[in-house]
Amino acid sequence: MSSNFGLVPIMAVVAIQLFLIPSVLSLNLTNAYLHHKCNNTQGKYSKGSAFEKNINLAIRSSDSNNFLNGFGYIEKGEDPNKVFLMYQCRGDSYGSKCRSCVDAGVSELRRRCPRNKGAIIWYDQCLVEITTINSFNKIDYENDFYLSNPNNVSDKELFNKEMSALLVELTDKATDKNNMKNNKFVLYAAGDKRIGTKTVYAMVQCTKDLVTTSCAACFEWIFKMFSECCDGKRGGRVLGTSCNFRYELYPFLRN
């Protein structure tokens, strides 16, 4: 667990879990805010400054192709006012759903991190980052957090073993060099598995600026947090800016 965030307070986890109603329809209609970080080390910008103008240019530069692909990485301006805007939408939330999530993320970043040059926000269906640092095809090992269901399964040892195997299986699928769409690596996979009397549903995803090898390295990193996050839990997820995984005992993705 990165020291930048620390543990998510248990009441916050419980509050977020209230959104996780075991209904595919209701889950598809929600896009819960999960977490954000205002990066104070990159400084602040002034109203009307060149940096603010570059942020606005980056936001307006997102086009329909970006949202259909679920990923955007946009650079605007020159040093020292250069801006990088990155967003990645969940693998089942491309197109109009991606656009609405990114719009919400940009709006909330302005509210929660007013005039910060660096900031990140996570929702159920996307993440959005504004930064002064070019991180294209680089794994972010600094910004991560996790959420978990407060309730445990009955057979923790069996569940942990089978859940870990499912995550490895999905990783292999997501990082398969043949798993491509529109000449781009998909870097996303979802599936389900019967464990005891329960069916578990899971997904893994990397941002599309990564290549398959760096995506696999990112998964290896966040899977090390499984015991801290998800040991015997009925649902859990670890989210970074470069990759994430989630599992639940109910469907939470669109078909």
Rank of each mutant, 00 (worst) to 15 (best):
N255M: 14
I10C: 10
K53T: 07
N151G: 07
N182C: 11
S242M: 12
A174I: 06
D79R: 15
W122M: 03
V106N: 05
L68D: 12
A58H: 01
F226W: 14
N137E: 14
C230A: 08
I10T: 13
K193W: 04
L25F: 10
D172A: 07
K47Y: 14
Y45L: 06
M203E: 13
V83A: 05
S26D: 08
P22A: 09
S148R: 06
F245P: 11
V14F: 12
C38R: 03
Q17T: 03
P114W: 07
V24M: 06
N81S: 03
G240V: 00
N31A: 08
L147F: 03
D231S: 07
K184N: 13
R112A: 00
S26P: 03
C126K: 01
G236R: 00
K138E: 09
D103K: 06
K47R: 15
S26Q: 15
M225C: 11
S227D: 09
S2Q: 09
S61F: 10
G95V: 10
S148K: 09
K138P: 08
G72M: 02
T171L: 02
K177S: 07
N152P: 11
S135W: 12
K53G: 04
T171G: 12
F226N: 06
K208L: 06
I222E: 12
L249W: 14
Y33V: 00
S46A: 15
A50F: 02
Y250S: 15
S214H: 05
D172C: 08
S2F: 10
E157M: 14
Q17N: 15
L253S: 03
R115Q: 15
D63C: 11
W221M: 05
F19Y: 12
I195K: 01
S62A: 13
S154A: 10
N179K: 06
K173F: 05
E220C: 01
